[in-house]
């Protein structure tokens, strides 16, 4: 037998290895083709709330600090939002923020204290042009077909770019394991893990089956929810008839939460 040169031998060896791995990949793809999961079709619930730009109108004339605490309790209890005592690490979906803080830079200069210190409802604005969605490197946060800005917790890597980007401070990071700080557990909704970002989801899981968000229900008429693109919806009518404010519209994010003062 002619003696093989080392180079030739190595080349041959590499080719063999490549062949074997190609065969293995081929075999595995055949195997997976035979066992695809889908054996049915996916559908949306027929009762799902209709709309392409879900928004909220909050009538602050009818909501006080106690009411906000109640809304927060209902929301956080259902969504398993942890109650982290350390303020630095806190997680919140809906909370009370003073008027001067909520509308920082857009208030009047010599505002009477009773207005400046009035507690307002703060939550994610579900912007039409959300910065968080723009900056997210994995599309873990995205806008659904109803204009609700959602988090895919499975995909979030916890880079916190969205938190730096959000002009509304709506996002919280799980600095600790949230399960250690649940006062009570709702087994119908998942918790989160430490190291992911979360925020208000406009109760997408309820909207999908035709229910209003929990805070809307708990507010007893002071908060309205619906399609801002539909001129006949309750939210559109409220905006048409009342003086309303949005937060930081000069940033071009097009927030979908309106406040009646």
């Amino acid at each position: 037998m002619e003696k093989m040169s080392r180079r030739k031998f190595l080349k041959l060896g590499t080719l063999c290895a490549a062949g074997v791995s190609a065969a293995a990949i081929g075999a595995s793809s055949v195997a997976s083709a035979a066992t695809t999961a889908t054996t049915g079709t996916y559908q949306k619930n027929v009762k799902r709330l209709k709309g392409t730009a879900m928004g909220m109108v909050i009538d602050m004339r009818e909501i006080d600090s106690e009411k906000i605490a109640e809304l927060q309790k209902v929301c956080h209890a259902f969504h398993n939002v942890p109650n982290v005592p350390n303020e630095k690490d806190e997680v919140k979906w809906i909370w009370a923020e003073k008027y001067v803080n909520l509308f920082a830079g857009e208030t009047t200069e010599r505002l009477a204290e009773k207005f400046a210190d009035k507690d307002f409802v703060a939550l994610c604005n579900h912007c039409e042009s959300p910065v968080c969605v723009r900056v997210c490197p994995t599309k873990a946060t995205f806008t659904n077909d109803q204009g609700i800005v959602l988090m895919d917790m499975h995909r979030c890597i916890g880079c916190r770019n969205c938190m730096a980007a959000c002009p509304y401070g709506a996002r919280s990071f799980n600095f600790v394991n949230p399960r250690d700080y649940l006062d009570e557990v709702n087994y119908a909704y998942p918790t989160r893990m430490k190291g992911v970002v979360e925020k208000c989801n406009f109760c997408a899981e309820r909207v999908a089956v035709g229910q209003l968000p929990l805070c809307v229900e708990a507010a007893g008429g002071a908060i309205s929810f619906g399609d801002l693109n539909d001129p006949e919806s309750k939210v559109s009518k409220l905006i048409a008839e009342n003086f309303t404010l949005q937060r930081k519209i000069n940033l071009g994010t097009k927030p979908k939460v309106y406040y009646i003062i």
Binding site: T35, A37, T39, G40, Y42, N144, Q146, M153, A208, V209
Partner: peptide
């Protein structure tokens, strides 16, 4: 089928429900 593929079923639900908003599955 479930014994072998439940993880694939759940993984598919994960995408359909969270990302596509399709919360109902109708079997064949």
């Amino acid at each position: 089928y479930m014994r072998a593929n439940h993880m694939k079923v759940l993984s598919e639900w994960k995408v359909e429900v969270v990302r596509n908003g399709n919360r109902m599955i109708v079997t064949e």
